[in-house]
Design a protein around this nucleic acid. Sequence first.
DNA 1: GCGTAGATGCAACCTAGTAGCAACTATGCC
DNA 2: GGCATAGTTGCTACTAGGTTGCATCTACGC
Lengths: 136, 136
Amino acid sequence: MSRGLRMTRQRRTILRIVETAKQHLDASQILRRARKIDAQIDRVTVYRTLKLLKRHGLVDELDLMHLEGEKHFYERKPQRDHLHMACLRCGKILEFESDLFDRLKGQIQRECQFHILVTRMEIGGYCAACRRTSAS
Amino acid sequence: MSRGLRMTRQRRTILRIVETAKQHLDASQILRRARKIDAQIDRVTVYRTLKLLKRHGLVDELDLMHLEGEKHFYERKPQRDHLHMACLRCGKILEFESDLFDRLKGQIQRECQFHILVTRMEIGGYCAACRRTSAS
DNA sequence: GCGTAGATGCAACCTAGTAGCAACTATGCC
DNA sequence: GGCATAGTTGCTACTAGGTTGCATCTACGC
């Protein structure tokens, strides 16, 4: 972060939380964790910081098929993009990297002359376990 | 629609609006159009109906990268899935169908044993026109 | 036509996120 | 190190989008 941006205590805290998180966190979970480190930190600061990190490509925002309400989830931007599968029965989130995915993005850049900055691919359906325990 | 579901006047109206729309509409735009046909129709009915249509796979819900607020957009479920590109500068929405996209979905079904019901692939970036008129 | 499960409309509510603004502070410069 | 100040924070209040509870209405199978 440069260009007139400041690395404040709060931003450092929030960034660290997202970067070290083992699952996808939403804003209120991030706030809760941030408060454990810095009790003064405000809800609004969390929202503002996430927006900033997203705009600067440090974190990705996910909807995860809105399995539970309309909130957003965040994850540190990975080296290589992946897609998310959300099981509509058990709520499990799976990630998947694929050569075809990378090639698809390449095709879009070439054929549509579209300069890609963010991608979000989410799939809803039934995971292997849930398929087995049901008729469909 | 069967299985205990009723085809009411309101549902018919909403479904027709989404099916004949030339662009992606959000809930409030759908409400506005529905009221022109049936002045009594309620906001809540629109939300409930869209949820229902989504659940039954008749319409797809889109975020379109949340270019303007957090609302959702709807489109009739197409024969063949496509992905959406949203230009972060001019706001234009482009659609794209691709063999690679279909193959990627096939790969997921096979390799992850994941039964796909809905897919949502959205890409944010700069469209051809906006790329040309800017440094980046 | 009748009964009823299912749908609607209304009002109240909820949750996620945003705006305005005075007080605070990270950072560049001396 | 101390200072100036642009950038950031934490309040409070607010908005947008969507949901719930419930009494009333109605599509549709008989």
